[in-house]
């Protein structure tokens, strides 16, 4: 019996070569990502300063901090999460409990997954058309100014518009994770509760929600992480504001838009502030994702 040594050598060589390339790909990827984080931490830490948290964004050539942008980001993200989470959780509950195999649930799931990865700049345009654009004497605007008077948020850039555009991003994230987490709850639990005579709504609220609590919190944290770096939708909804403002009906600053504006400027000091802001956002996002990961239940 003859052994075709050349063939074996060739196959062995091919295997080693391509696996070597795979290792190379991994090293290459990790080097770039390390390069990015390294640059971010280096430039961010050298720009860190207590003033960041106490002073407002400065005009060119002046000293200042990022206090108004940090506050703006916190306010708008909180409003978006507070309003978006219940809607997302309830819709996720519908998909996991009531709709499950229904046709309507199938379409909602499909649409939700599209919204989940749709470009965020589209969200901004949507809210711009819905809230910001000034249609004189429209029904909504009359109702808005009738109810809120000078606090009406429609017809111009406002923090409400910013929060709404972030909310549109929060909802699909929460829907997806809550549905997934509710589906992980064993049916035996639901059946046991139903056998005790509990109405279905009580089963869901007292049993399945409670069993899936950790997972649902994970989803909310991921949603916060997702919106804390969103820039595009805020550019033409909340706009920005160089002063301290907590008025939701007025334009409001946010970290990402300030980073965008400052980084694109020619001023050295603004660049430093942009790096500091970028570091703050990354630190927040990484912390949130790590906490979310620790809370996440194991996949069965």
């Amino acid at each position: 019996m003859t052994v075709n040594t050349a063939l074996y050598v060739r196959r062995k060589f091919r295997s080693t070569l391509f696996l070597g390339l795979a290792v190379g790909a991994a090293v290459f990827g990790i080097i770039w990502l390390g390069f990015i984080l390294g640059a971010l931490f280096y430039n961010g830490f050298t720009a860190l300063d207590p003033k960041l948290f106490t002073q407002m964004t400065p005009p060119p050539g002046d000293d200042g901090g990022l206090a108004n942008a940090i506050a703006g980001s916190l306010i708008m993200s909180s409003v978006a999460v507070l309003v978006g989470t219940p809607i997302g959780l309830l819709a996720g509950t519908y998909l996991a409990e009531y709709g499950r195999y229904g046709r309507f649930a199938f379409y909602i799931r499909f649409i939700n997954d599209i919204l989940l990865s749709a470009p965020s700049i589209i969200t901004g345009l949507f809210i711009y058309e819905l809230v910001v654009v000034n249609v004189p004497d429209s029904y909504f605007e009359r109702a808005c100014s009738g109810l809120l008077g000078s606090n009406c948020f429609m017809g111009h850039f406002s923090a409400v518009a910013g929060s709404l555009s972030l909310m549109v991003i929060v909802i699909p994230v929460v829907v997806r994770t809550s549905e997934n987490m509710l589906l992980l709850v064993p049916n035996g639990l639901r059946e046991a509760a139903a056998a005790l005579g509990a109405p279905r709504s009580n089963v869901i609220r007292a049993v399945t929600w409670r069993a899936a609590r950790a997972g649902i919190v994970t989803g909310i944290l991921l949603a916060i992480a997702r919106i804390s770096g969103e820039t595009a939708p805020l550019l033409f909804t909340a706009l920005g504001n160089p002063f301290w403002s907590t008025d939701l009906s007025q334009p409001m600053a946010s970290l990402p838009t300030v980073i965008f504006q400052f980084a694109m400027s020619p001023y050295e000091y603004w660049h430093r502030l942009a790096w500091a802001g970028a570091l703050l956002i990354t630190a927040a996002v990484l912390t949130l994702s790590i906490v979310a990961r620790l809370l996440q239940p194991k996949r069965s």
Binding site: A39, G229, E230, F260, I281, T282
Partner: peptide, 12 residues
């Protein structure tokens, strides 16, 4: 999960 603006500022 790192926001895209970080990639942008690093790129620039």
């Amino acid at each position: 999960g790192i926001p895209s603006i970080i990639y942008g500022i690093w790129g620039l």
